[in-house]
């Protein structure tokens, strides 16, 4: 049965494997888009900064709830809707917690923008492009980083001020006092203003401009109560000579009169299906109108805050039986409403 029955067997196996000990094996990644190697050309820098604009959009893809904090938390409007966003009701009735989804989403979104901007700021100097383009891209990223910090500090007060790419062991940071955040914003925007162009044409319309950077610097100084600096920055903006109020207030809301002389800097929206559109039309449209979500039903207090015959009121609030941008809205009472709202 067993052939080598008299042979005592003692098996000793000794195996040694050699693993990566020499530099020969440390290869640079090939075909993988590694952030350290990605930024090489002018186009790479532009693509990088394009992504830093994405958090501005007001739609479902990125959950930008900036509007909630100013509008619903105040008495300007009430969170209506069907309850599908319990968080905005929590904010409206001041029962929000650190776990409220909209608060988390807003925080996360803006920091995603800041981290993206920081990547652009740190990688763009090394790309192979002419200095004017590099300056513009870095100026845009500085402006966007400042803008995201600015709206974060408006909502949260002291917030982490993130100015560099962080290693995973450096990510647990404390909040920075609001005044320091604002001072950083003011100085970054002043730097950005020296890098950015006065305006853009064609397919670059909507990028950060010199005027936008000066205006955000002025706002930061305003919150710092440094009124002289506010006045100086506003004088700088005026000196650019390209801004003026519109004769007709409603021009600020028409598709055809976007980016007009009254607009220093404007968030661009285009196509809902492709994820770069604006959801607020439907979210804010009253639930009394068909297809309206009614997430932001204006209060009478807000309406009454307009002076009598203020021409802006009828372009700000749609009221029953009154024309609003060519559509006469009616309360929806179980009969189909024929207008498609755009």
């Amino acid at each position: 049965m067993r052939n080598n029955i008299y042979t005592p067997i003692l098996l000793v196996l000794f195996s040694v494997w050699f693993a990566s000990c020499t530099d020969v094996l440390d290869k640079e990644p090939l075909g993988v888009l590694d952030a350290n190697n990605y930024f090489k050309t002018a186009e790479d820098a532009i693509q990088g900064v394009n992504a830093a604009y994405q958090p501005l959009l007001m739609n479902n893809e990125n959950n930008n709830f900036y509007w909630v904090f100013g509008t619903l938390a105040s008495e300007e409007a009430l969170a209506g809707g069907d309850g599908s966003r319990p968080g905005i009701i929590e904010i409206d009735i001041m029962k929000h917690t650190a776990a409220t989804q909209e608060i988390n989403d807003f925080w996360k979104l803006n920091y995603a923008g800041i981290v993206q901007a920081n990547t652009v700021i740190s990688k763009t100097p090394q790309v192979d492009a002419d200095q004017a383009l590099k300056d513009r891209v870095i100026g845009e990223a500085l402006f966007l980083r400042s803008y995201y910090h600015f709206i974060l500090t408006q909502v949260f007060g002291d917030v982490p001020l993130i100015l560099e790419i962080q290693a995973p062991d450096e990510v647990n940071v404390f909040r920075t006092p609001k005044a320091e955040v604002l001072a950083q914003i003011a100085s970054d925007c002043e730097l950005a203003a020296t890098l950015l162009p006065l305006s853009y044409a064609g397919n670059d319309l909507g990028r950060a401009t010199k005027g936008a950077a000066l205006a955000l610097a002025a706002k930061a100084y305003l919150y710092l109560k440094d009124y002289n600096s506010v006045l100086n920055r506003i004088a700088d903006i005026k000196a650019l000579g390209i801004y003026a109020l519109q004769a007709d207030y409603r021009n600020n809301f028409y598709d055809s009169t976007q980016n007009n002389s009254e607009s220093v800097w404007e968030i661009q929206h285009e196509n809902l299906e492709l994820g770069v559109g604006n959801f607020l039309n439907q979210w804010w449209l009253s639930k009394k109108v068909m297809d309206g979500y009614g997430f932001c039903e204006v209060s009478m207090e807000f309406v009454n805050a307009f002076e009598p015959n203020d021409p802006r009121l009828k372009f700000t609030v749609a009221r029953h039986n009154e024309p609003y941008f060519g559509v006469t809205y009616k309360r929806w009472k179980h009969q189909l409403y024929s207008h498609t709202i755009r």
Binding site: N50, L56, L57, Y200, A201, Q268, V276
Partner: peptide, 8 residues
């Protein structure tokens, strides 16, 4: 990634 509309 589709990011943002510039000039439409």
């Amino acid at each position: 990634i589709l990011e943002y509309p510039f000039g439409g």
